[in-house]
């Protein structure tokens, strides 16, 4: 058997699984998106709607607000996690840091906690009337912190919770990337008289690009489909202040059983995610299209 055929044979099981659990459901969603289908309607069968679901989305303020809110959330958490993650990675790599191994372990712990548990824990910390965060914010700073009435408090808490949960992942990724960097270019840059900022920007960042790109993509896609943590923390509230797009789609598809519209929302969200990722890829690599 030719070597290339053996390769395909090894890939076959994974490809088959991906086809069954990924591609076929995708085609089904694409199909359902063209229908008006609600199992609790007078006529619960699929009724052809053409592009009407997509047309409605363009005028659906709740959907558009959810999408915009999600993009803002994703932008803030990804940028913050990248900055924080880099600073922490450098700190945890510093030889002079006492108890480095211990801090590395502690710092990594949030990653292993299930998102649903993270959401529940933060909920307990923040619940008005009983949570320790509102209690001490009031006691020490006189702040009336309330995630069930103040949209900014709820949105801010969702961001902080995400930072707490996922910054360690970014730190670990960057630590791996930084450790693998060759020392010669850095030494050469120092000899050539580059200052710290110049070395960081012109030497470290370009060399770290593959790791940065992977990390940003993973975190961006995670942030865009954030559901379980936020569901546990605020249930999308107060009102709709933290109703991110994943949560909005879930509400439409499951409790509201609006399958056709929900399918259209999912596809449009997928499209936005792909476009964003592509733009990011182009911006970070300087490449255009898929030519290279």
């Amino acid at each position: 058997m030719r070597r290339s055929n053996i390769g395909w044979l090894f890939l076959a099981p994974a490809t088959l699984i991906l086809f069954v659990v990924g591609f076929i459901p995708f085609l089904y969603i694409l199909y359902v998106g063209f229908f008006d289908w609600n199992s609790n309607a007078v006529d619960p069968t699929l009724r052809w709607a053409g592009l009407q679901n997509y047309r409605n989305l363009v005028f659906d303020a709740t959907f558009l607000n959810s999408l915009a809110r999600t993009l803002v959330f994703a932008f803030i958490v990804v940028v913050s996690e990248l900055l924080l993650g880099y600073v922490l990675a450098r700190a945890l790599m510093a030889d002079r840091l006492w108890g480095r191994q211990f801090f590395r372990t502690i710092h990594t712990l949030p990653i292993v906690v299930a998102p649903i548990a993270v959401g529940a824990t933060w909920r307990l910390l923040c619940v008005p009337g009983f949570g320790i965060i509102p209690y001490y914010l009031k006691l020490w700073f006189g702040i009336d912190y309330n995630i069930s009435t103040n949209a900014y408090h709820a949105f801010g808490t969702a961001i902080v919770m995400d930072l707490w949960h996922w910054t360690p992942f970014v730190t670990l990724s960057l630590m791996a990337g930084l450790t693998a960097l060759p020392k010669e270019p850095l030494e050469q840059a120092q000899i050539d008289g580059g200052n710290k900022l110049q070395i960081f920007w012109y030497v470290i960042v370009p060399m770290l690009k593959p790791v940065l790109l992977t990390t940003v993509f993973i975190r961006l896609m995670d942030a865009l489909r954030s559901v379980d943590e936020v569901w546990m923390l605020t249930k999308g509230g107060p009102a709709e202040a933290t109703r991110f797009i994943g949560l909005h789609i879930w509400i439409n598809v499951f409790p509201k059983t609006d399958y056709g519209y929900g399918a259209a929302m999912s596809l449009l969200t997928l499209y936005v995610t792909i476009v964003l990722s592509w733009l990011l890829f182009v911006a970070m690599t300087g490449r255009k299209g898929g030519a290279q």
Binding site: N40, T149, G237, A239, N252, P255, K256
Partner: peptide, 21 residues
Amino acid sequence: PFHAQVLQVVAPFIYKAIVGE
């Protein structure tokens, strides 16, 4: 028979009234 559907549509307005939006 449309209990959940009307609930999901109407509830956000009640939430907005609660928070003073």
